[in-house]
Write a protein that binds this DNA or RNA. Sequence first.
DNA 1: TCTCGGCATGACGATTTCATGACAAGACTG
DNA 2: CAGTCTTGTCATGAAATCGTCATGCCGAGA
Lengths: 225, 225
Amino acid sequence: MTAVLLIEDDDRIRLSLVLALEDEGYAAHAVATAEEGLIEQRRVGADTVLIDLMLPGMDGFECIRQLRRTDDVPIVVISARDDTHDIVAALEAGADDYLIKPVAVKELAARLRALRRRSRTADAPALRILTFGDLELRPEAGEVRLHGAEVPVTRTEFQLLCELDDHAGQVLSREQLLQRVWGYDIGDERLVDVHVGRLRHKIEDTPGKPRHLVTVRGLGYKLQP
Amino acid sequence: MTAVLLIEDDDRIRLSLVLALEDEGYAAHAVATAEEGLIEQRRVGADTVLIDLMLPGMDGFECIRQLRRTDDVPIVVISARDDTHDIVAALEAGADDYLIKPVAVKELAARLRALRRRSRTADAPALRILTFGDLELRPEAGEVRLHGAEVPVTRTEFQLLCELDDHAGQVLSREQLLQRVWGYDIGDERLVDVHVGRLRHKIEDTPGKPRHLVTVRGLGYKLQP
DNA sequence: TCTCGGCATGACGATTTCATGACAAGACTG
DNA sequence: CAGTCTTGTCATGAAATCGTCATGCCGAGA
């Protein structure tokens, strides 16, 4: 059974939501403040956290941020405030979904199922530093290194490389690359060739024999893992 | 850049959403019908699909179900209908989120970011590998391996192999293969023979005794599981 | 065994697909 | 404002690939 932790200060809503969730087959557990919620989640480790934004003491936003420091648990906000600004802030703080009170329990249950479907895996990815043999890509730093030495690449080249990197090992068609790097719907696909060529000059040692950025004839290009 | 596919029949909404998404830094691409959407997603493979529910022809629910049969892409519904029943049905069909028109673009963008944050970890190692004894087929990588070593294969050969693979174990007639790989309605069936022959040179070790790509006299070819 | 239709295969010209160098129009910098 | 960097377009040539055809083989049924 799925364990849900509800953080909500209003007694009536808290009680009715717990009952409704139990009806839907969840093991629901509720507390009234953000502080209790943090402790409880650390202790119990529910599969999903439901949280109100307006809480006495620590507010919902801060609670979400603190949860997110240590926990990748799916978080759904349930709030009376329907302001776009609040919604964006909550999602940016680390929430996964935002429902406006009064909530339809069926909808809540469906959203919880959808979210759970999506959150199957647990491990959080570390800072990405991707290595392909002697080629290093640091997306956050905007750096490309070959044999440890930084290689100057232009913005377009870098984006192209990142796009290929995001799908390392997969073939991306010129069309896909045009769409993703340039934002074109249609356009001259030779443009991709030209940039791939330029990139190769910089990141391949042996001309004519690309080891990283290989072309798959008739399909596109890919970055060799 | 993140590629988004929008499926929306209303011209005004479609255009304004595309522009708004591009402002937010997405590579947006739009079609007007569910049927086009399915084709487009198979062709281009966006990172996220936005879809309206009320569409001419195939409706949004069915489109979501069909997408989900082959694709794990995040799907966000954007609909004018605010009925709980519709929301639940869409989420159950496989959607990840549901927004009610008119949508606040900032909220949409925030939800897309949240969804992407959530999906990224899950679908990282999604490279399919299909194995037939010593023969390996990696559709996304555009690779064919025999005894672990990569075999260079042309596009048509690769498509032919994928098609046979999709129906592994069952016989496909030359006519079916012509239709599926070449798109011909009619044509010279010898063409299939020639390509099967070329493919065999590459993926069979013992000439004259095909172990993977078997011909069924009078019927067609099949890939032996 | 003979015959015949289905199948395999090698060759070849036509076409497609790629790589690359050159160039001009911006963008950026000092 | 001049010089440099970046970017998109184009032309060209090389190489890989495609579809067709002709030829010959092989298996199944008589």
